Simulated assay, not measured.
Amino acid sequence: MSQPSDGLSRRRFLAGSAGALALSPLLLHGRRAGAATPGRLRVAQYKGGDKLLLEAAGLADTPYPIDWAEFASGNLMVEAMNGGSLDLAYGSEIPPLFGYLKGARIRVVGVIKGDVNEQTVLVPKDSPIRSIADLKGKRVGYVRATTTQYYLTKMLDEVGLSFADIQAINLTVPDGAAAFRTGQLDAWAIYGYSVPLAQTSVGARVLKRANGYLSGNYLFFAAPEAIADPQRQAAIADYFARLQKAFAWRQANHERYAAALAAEIGVPIEAVLTLLRNESQVRRLVAVDDEAIRSQQDVADTFHKAGVIERSVDVRPLWDRSFATAFAG
């Protein structure tokens, strides 16, 4: 299978989208955290992520300091962790897989069971595109090494197409938002609160949701040095315990959580509530288990079969069960 074209490339889109990008409420740029400090956690999050949730749930009073760093996607978190800037981060099954293939120093230590209904292919509101088959020859934005590459691969294969049959354009989240908003994309495979932002700002229409294509597993990964450091390991265990409670609070307090999140990310409260009410499963945090490992192995095998990765890979060495006791507690 031909690899997605980068030459349609980001430069052309960035040049055309610079003005719109400056105004986007979706600008989520990663910031490097400082050097490791005993007892201090350097934690990655998305805009409106765990920091806001812990504060809203009244669980932010950790006995250890946390340096938060905001990123737009899990693949950027993997890069930052491999560079020594992070202790803990999370993303879908795909970024850790691509990082593992490149030798990144990361280990998967926990699993969030989360929503997949907010993973979608969007098209402009007046688009004539009505099915995935209609994407043939069209300009489709996605984020390489994330869920978007995976579910788009699966959806295209289902209708006898591949990335070679579309004009696939790898864009960061903010670049994709600007390109979609300014009419430079025919479709956009994207996730999270980018979806309601696009719907409320330009009336984007959902072409297809990723439910049925994704497992709903979102992986917490940690730096091996943080796992090996007793102080940081204890801090991570406490962080996970707090997050488990925070997810339970989120489920019981949709309105309060939606109000806090809407203010943070700049979308109407009702847009957040719509996503919360339509989640494919209750969000929860669980320990590493064999089923989760098999799920990521399926992703790796799918990418290998599609020619996205050049060799077969055994993902088991990527996973670490060091926090089993913490999750059980």
Rank of each mutant, 00 (worst) to 15 (best):
V267L: 10
T274E: 08
V116Y: 09
A60L: 11
V202E: 13
R250G: 03
T37F: 01
I293W: 03
A22R: 11
A189W: 01
L14A: 14
K245H: 04
L243Y: 03
L97N: 09
R232I: 03
G212C: 05
D314N: 15
E79K: 07
N75C: 05
P230I: 01
Q281D: 06
L161H: 09
D289Q: 04
L122Q: 14
R144Y: 09
P268S: 08
L273E: 11
S131K: 08
N217D: 15
L207C: 00
Q149S: 13
L156Y: 01
A258I: 01
R256G: 06
S24C: 01
I293A: 06
Y257R: 02
D67V: 13
L185G: 01
G74S: 03
D301M: 07
S162M: 06
L88K: 07
Q119C: 12
Q251M: 02
Q297V: 05
N253S: 01
D301Y: 01
A89Y: 04
M1Y: 11
G30T: 04
G203T: 10
G99W: 00
G212H: 07
G192C: 06
G266E: 13
G141D: 04
K102W: 00
I66T: 07
G30M: 02
L41S: 11
E255M: 01
N75D: 13
P38I: 01
F98W: 00
R105V: 00
K47M: 11
S2T: 14
Y46P: 00
A252E: 15
L318Q: 07
Y213A: 04
A234W: 02
W68V: 02
G84V: 09
A222P: 02
P38M: 04
G30R: 08
L219P: 02
G91W: 12
A252N: 10
Y193S: 15
A326N: 10
E55P: 00
D126Y: 09
G137A: 07
S2G: 05
A20E: 15
Q281G: 03
E118T: 13
S322I: 14
I106L: 15
E158W: 03
T120K: 15
I66A: 07
T274G: 12
R284P: 02
F240G: 02
R10N: 04
G19D: 11
I269E: 10
L8W: 11
A328R: 11
F303A: 09
L23C: 00
S92Y: 08
D87R: 08
I94T: 14
G30N: 07
L26V: 11
P63E: 07
R277P: 02
N170L: 02
A222T: 09
S127H: 13
A33L: 14
K154C: 13
Y257T: 08
E118R: 14
L214C: 10
G329N: 12
K125Y: 13
E70R: 09
V315D: 00
R256S: 09
S24R: 12
R321T: 11
L243V: 05
G103H: 03
Y46R: 05
P268M: 06
V116K: 09
